[in-house]
Amino acid sequence: MTTSGAPRVRVRRIYDPVEPDDGARVLVDRLWPRGVSKERADLHEWCKDVAPSTELRQWYAHDPERFAEFARRYRDELADPTRAEALDGLQALLRQGPVTLLTAAKRSDISEATVLQEVLRGSG
């Protein structure tokens, strides 16, 4: 819990070791990460439905110069009924306690998980 009493949401790479304060660990990538067993992932949930579309993911290709436009387009995609329902599920999970959004991206700071973190915190 944060000092405001609101549960915390953070972003980590799925390749990082599990930490005791991770809370509910949720993979938000559409594709399963290479080299990670389901046991090692130690997931609460694999939320594929909240992930960006294949077209958007391929266009973005984790190019830092495209992140702002990626984030804008991804926020638009989150209004899609399937993604919106998945996002509602993440919000419900966050009301229960800390949530760690996991991604296989090499740079989690420019990943869909970071965009989701902003949305879940109400600043996106």
Rank of each mutant, 00 (worst) to 15 (best):
R57C: 05
R12G: 02
L87G: 06
A6V: 04
M1H: 12
A84Q: 07
T114Q: 15
A41S: 12
V50R: 11
T100P: 10
P33C: 10
R34I: 03
W32E: 06
Q96L: 14
V9H: 11
D63T: 08
A61Q: 12
K38F: 04
E65N: 01
A79G: 09
G89F: 00
D16T: 07
E77L: 01
A6G: 05
Y15K: 01
F67Y: 15
T103N: 06
Y74K: 01
A104N: 05
K38H: 05
E55Q: 12
A113C: 09
L56E: 08
K48C: 05
L120H: 15
A113D: 03
G5K: 15
V119F: 09
L120P: 12
V115E: 09
S37A: 05
V11R: 13
I14M: 03
S108V: 00
L87S: 08
Y15I: 00
D109K: 05
L116S: 08
L27H: 09
T3W: 14
Q91A: 15
S37E: 04
R12Y: 01
A84L: 08
T103K: 05
P17W: 03
P64Q: 07
V119Y: 12
A6Q: 13
A51I: 04
Q91K: 15
G89I: 00
V36K: 01
L27M: 11
E69L: 13
D88E: 14
R72V: 08
D80C: 00
E19D: 13
Y15Q: 04
A6F: 07
G124Q: 04
P81R: 00
A71T: 13
L93W: 05
K48S: 10
S53Y: 01
